[in-house]
C-alpha cells in the first residue's frame, strides 16, 4: 500500500480537480472546452486509480479517454451547432429536475460510502497487481475476457453498419434524409 502525506495531498488535488472539471463540463459554452474538461476529469480519476494500486486500469483509462476525447471533438464539429462556443447558448432541458436528481444521487451514494461498513481488507502487495490481472484475464476469467472481446467486435460491426455510407434512405453523399421529412421542415415531430 502506498501511503503518506504526499500521497494524500496528491489524492486531494486529483479528487478536487476531477470534480471541478466534471462540474465545468456542463457549465461551459463551448463543447470543445467541455470535452477538454471531461478529459481532465478522467485524468484525475486515472491518477487516483493509479494511487490506489491499480496501475494498469488507471493507465488504460487515461489512454482510452485521450483517444475518445479527440473523436468526440471531431464529432461535435461535424454535427453540432456552435461547436466552438463563440455564441454563448444554453442547451438544457428539465434543468431543475435534473439537478435535483443529481444531488439526490450524490447524497444517497455518499451516504452509502460514509455509513456503509466495509471490511478492511487492503491489497497485500500492489506491485504484483498487474501480473495478477494478466493471469486472471487468461486464466479463470478467460470466458469473461473473450465475451468482452466478442462484444467489442460486434459493436464495431454494428457501428459501421449504422454509421456507414449507405443509409436506409440513400447514400450519404446524396440526400439520405427521411422521405417523409421535407428538406426545409423542422424535424421536431
Amino acid at each position: 500500500m502506498i501511503a503518506g502525506p504526499l500521497v494524500d495531498a496528491t489524492f486531494w488535488v486529483f479528487a478536487l480537480g476531477s470534480i471541478v472539471a466534471g462540474y465545468r463540463v456542463f457549465r461551459t459554452d463551448s463543447m470543445v472546452r467541455a470535452a477538454f474538461y471531461l478529459l481532465a476529469s478522467f485524468a484525475g480519476v486515472g491518477g487516483i486509480v493509479v494511487l490506489l494500486g491499480a496501475e494498469f486500469l488507471g493507465m488504460v483509462l487515461i489512454l482510452m479517454m485521450a483517444g475518445e476525447m479527440l473523436i468526440m471533438a471531431i464529432v461535435m464539429v461535424m454535427f453540432m451547432m456552435n461547436p466552438a462556443g463563440l455564441n454563448p447558448m444554453v442547451m438544457v432541458h428539465q434543468n431543475r429536475r435534473a439537478a435535483v436528481a443529481g444531488i439526490v444521487a450524490f447524497v444517497a451514494l455518499a451516504a452509502v460510502g460514509l455509513l456503509g461498513n466495509f471490511p478492511a481488507r487492503p491489497v497485500p502487495d500492489p506491485s504484483t497487481a498487474t501480473a495478477e490481472l494478466g493471469t486472471e484475464l487468461l486464466g479463470d476469467s478467460m470466458l469473461v475476457f473473450q465475451s468482452a472481446g466478442v462484444a467489442l467486435l460486434s459493436t464495431m460491426i454494428g457501428a459501421v453498419v449504422i454509421a456507414g455510407r449507405k443509409g436506409r434512405f440513400g447514400v450519404a453523399e446524396e440526400d439520405s434524409i427521411e422521405p417523409s421529412l421535407q428538406p426545409d421542415e423542422e424535424p421536431g415531430r
Binding site: F36, L39, E55, F56, M59, V60, I62, L63, A66, G67, M69, L70, S127, A129, T130, A131
Partner: peptide
C-alpha cells in the same frame, strides 16, 4: 510495472 502502457498513454495524450 505498466511502463509500456504509461508510455502509450503519454503518446495518446500528445494528440490532446
Amino acid at each position: 510495472s505498466t511502463g509500456f502502457v504509461a508510455f502509450s498513454a503519454a503518446i495518446a495524450f500528445v494528440m490532446i
